[in-house]
């Protein structure tokens, strides 16, 4: 009897190893181990030149946060851009989605066009817009008499972040809009009819009837947008390279450069940890808010 039980247990263990084992090992090796080693490296002076390194305590963290003003500035810039990006992307996406759930016959084609940038690599989108900003928009301004359009959009520290925001909206609105359309279509027709019988106008129906129903789905779009904005890298890499000077250097680009351009792996790791902790904190904060919302509803 005991032997049979044992073999049953062995069999179950073998099944676990077969089904979950491979990905558990890969995930641990290429995700969990690097997290731990990244934290360890962040306390060292490891660089690309010397193969051995020394522990330096909190030196990298102190340097990153109090001496390296460029890093702190890049963090501020990232938050600033992320804030406007998240608000504008979601407002525009909801506006477009509301317009596109009507019976207008070309709605599908319009949706296809607005979603299109999403299937293109973001780094390629940066190049596309480099052409727009440097070769097209200025000429359009001259031709139409809108002289203010004819300026160095990417070369001027005052406009470069705005230019990045514009491209980011062009890229990101379609994705959130797609989520919002699905959410709006899931609202029960009879709810809307009831509201309209009660004399509610479109605006009231949206805020009081539709939005509460679709909020959980809409929040998914918002979250993806928040973390995407905080990690923005590809677009800046190809559109501005962080310039002019460092005027558009976002946090991720600063970390990348510290590690791969200046070869300071230890300092780069510390910066990566700082950025990650911020993103993790914001993510957990978001999870909490939605959990609370769902309970209330």
């Amino acid at each position: 009897m005991k032997i049979i039980l044992n073999s049953k247990k062995t069999k179950e263990t073998a099944l676990w190893l077969f089904f979950v084992g491979p990905i558990f090992i890969l995930f641990t090796m290429f995700f969990f181990v690097p997290i731990i080693s990244g934290i360890v490296y962040s306390f060292t002076d490891w660089d690309a030149i010397n193969s051995d390194f020394n522990f330096v305590g909190l030196k990298n963290y102190i340097f990153a946060l109090s001496i390296d003003t460029d890093f702190v500035a890049s963090l501020g810039r990232t938050f600033y851009l992320a804030f406007f990006n998240v608000v504008l992307t979601n407002v525009l996406a909801m506006l477009f989605a509301s317009a596109l759930v009507s019976n207008f016959k070309h709605n599908n084609k319009i949706r296809t066009a607005i979603f299109l940038p999403n299937v293109i690599s973001m780094v390629i989108c940066g190049f596309i817009w480099q052409v727009m900003f440097t070769k097209i928009i200025g000429k359009f301004g001259v031709a139409t008499g809108l002289g203010f359009l004819d300026r160095s959009w990417l070369g001027d520290p005052d406009t470069v972040l705005f230019s990045i925001l514009l491209v980011s909206l062009w890229y990101g609105v379609g994705y959130v809009m797609t989520i919002d359309i699905a959410a709006l279509q899931s609202v029960n027709e009879s709810l809307i009819e009831a509201a309209s019988l009660e004399g509610a106008n479109g605006w009231q129906t949206f805020w009081k009837v539709k939005l509460p129903v679709i909020l959980p789905t809409v929040m998914v779009g918002v979250f993806m947008n928040v973390s995407g904005s905080l990690k923005m890298f590809d677009l800046v890499f190809s559109l501005t390279g962080g310039g002019p000077g460092r005027a558009s250097e976002l946090a991720m680009l600063n970390v990348y450069r510290e590690a791969y351009q200046f070869n300071n792996y230890g300092l780069g790791s510390a910066k990566a940890v700082i950025l990650s902790v911020i993103i993790i904190a914001i993510t957990i904060f978001q999870f909490r808010i939605t959990a609370k919302n769902e309970v209330e509803m």
Binding site: F30, V33, S37, Y265, A272
Partner: peptide, 17 residues
């Protein structure tokens, strides 16, 4: 964890690994 911890946290060690 992968949904919470961003890629940049593992970027540098991953190359060495």
């Amino acid at each position: 964890l992968v949904l919470i911890i961003p890629f940049q946290a593992i970027m540098i060690p991953l190359v060495k690994l």
